[in-house]
Design a protein around this nucleic acid. Structure first.
Lengths: 227, 227
DNA sequence: CGAACTCATCTTGAATGGAAGGTTCGGCAG
DNA sequence: CTGCCGAACCTTCCATTCAAGATGAGTTCG
């Protein structure tokens, strides 16, 4: 297995800030400073600084040297292209999986869907989304492209911020039905149908984005705010 | 346009090390230390440390806390999956471009190919590869997914390391012929043919990879070196 | 001879102090 | 009132120092 790298202060700060950003505790446009965060968590500026660098590379905040560090606004175009990237990759994934079905593929996917249904019935939205992600992750694993999934997951974080703004509006039934349709197509080895279903499934995010931009315009980047 | 962020010491170190890694001046498996690099460039450990963090996130080196920092070996599986990602995205790109051809699309692409032919005739391998990349970049721009191309470019760096090991073996004629075939399919609005051609074109990297692994096994990650 | 232990010497992690540049706001001249 | 200008106060950047874990060679004990 991997050496589990020991958890450093810096990596803890990264996790904290990342969570704060995704959950909108830190809002797009908010200004933070090294000493501010450092004081709040009882560490020196150094590990905070390193956390800023990492998050900056992940596109979650922007360091403007000698000026300030700001939580990045969400780029509508960026989210659309993240979706483009995700769709490109996942289409290729389901093609692979549908074109080369293993014995337990269907059982595995069906299992995730069942667990998802349970979370949905229990009203556990966070748990539901976790398993939603797990469904797609499993598809990637079945296609043998774990690394590619990592990439999708990294970029999904921008969409996650959007999603967090609209919790509750989630249409669990649709999502589950679509997962079933995808699984059915995969089970049948129907590549064309599988591709069509996954595209339909992922297209749902587009509507979510438009609605969210309308509801929270301040959180999104405009042409001139894109310094 | 973008504020050009002032260049800091740290970012300069990043650029230097990045170049050293791609050009194999720093070989996979080499061990470097903060103080070593710092002394060599006449700066303190601090900016070097920050450069390490950035490069570490880009997958070019690995920081083993309290132990050492090593230039990451090339992961054959990682390169294959980078290729998978690239193919997924570029297939989608040419589909878009071929499905919605603009007036000057063909002229633009043909221009790049001509320039490429010139570099090839002049024996300028680096220039040739630069324009090769430019061809694909232009396709992305035509599809309106500049951001997605950025991502492909970021991940291409691993393949660039492989390519650097095999300079000279480049098959310029094949590449140019394939670019022409892609352009022709795009010009004809033939989505199916365009997809087939781009897949064929990108598949060439697979051969390159296998050969390189055979020639430089030490530079590649093995099952147990993947700590 | 071999295993375990100590310690000098590496490494990176974190804390702190100052340096250099950016922003802001109040005073002052016109 | 308007526009300039400068000083106080911010920010991030870099250097320095200390701390703590990992490593490896030499030694000692069984």
């Amino acid at each position: 297995m991997l050496d589990e790298l020991p958890e450093t202060m810096a990596s803890r700060i990264v996790a904290l800030l990342r969570d704060d950003i995704v959950t909108m505790a830190l809002k797009p446009g908010d200004i933070i400073s090294e000493s501010d965060i450092a004081g709040r968590h009882g560490v020196s500026r150094q590990p905070v600084r390193e956390a800023f660098i990492r998050l900056s590379q992940q596109g979650l905040l922007m360091i403007r040297p000698k000026r300030a560090t700001v939580i990045k606004k969400i780029s509508a175009d960026g989210v659309r292209q993240s979706r483009f990237i995700r769709e490109s990759i996942e289409v290729e994934i389901v093609r692979r999986v549908a074109g080369n079905p293993h014995a337990d593929t269907v059982a595995l996917l069906t299992g995730v869907i069942a667990a998802q249904q349970a979370k949905s019935d229990a009203g556990d939205i966070r748990g539901f989304h976790g398993l939603d992600e797990e469904f797609h992750h499993q598809l990637a694993l079945l296609a043998g492209v774990e690394y590619a999934w990592q990439l999708v997951a990294d970029h999904k974080i921008q969409l996650d911020r959007v999603r967090y703004l609209t919790l509750g509006r989630a249409s669990s039934e649709y999502a589950i039905a679509e997962h079933k349709a995808i699984t059915a197509a995969v089970a049948a080895g129907d590549v064309v149908s599988a591709e069509k279903e996954i595209r339909k499934h992922l297209a749902r995010a587009e509507v979510l984005l438009s609605q969210t931009i309308a509801d929270f315009p301040d959180y999104f980047e405009t042409a001139d705010s894109a310094h």
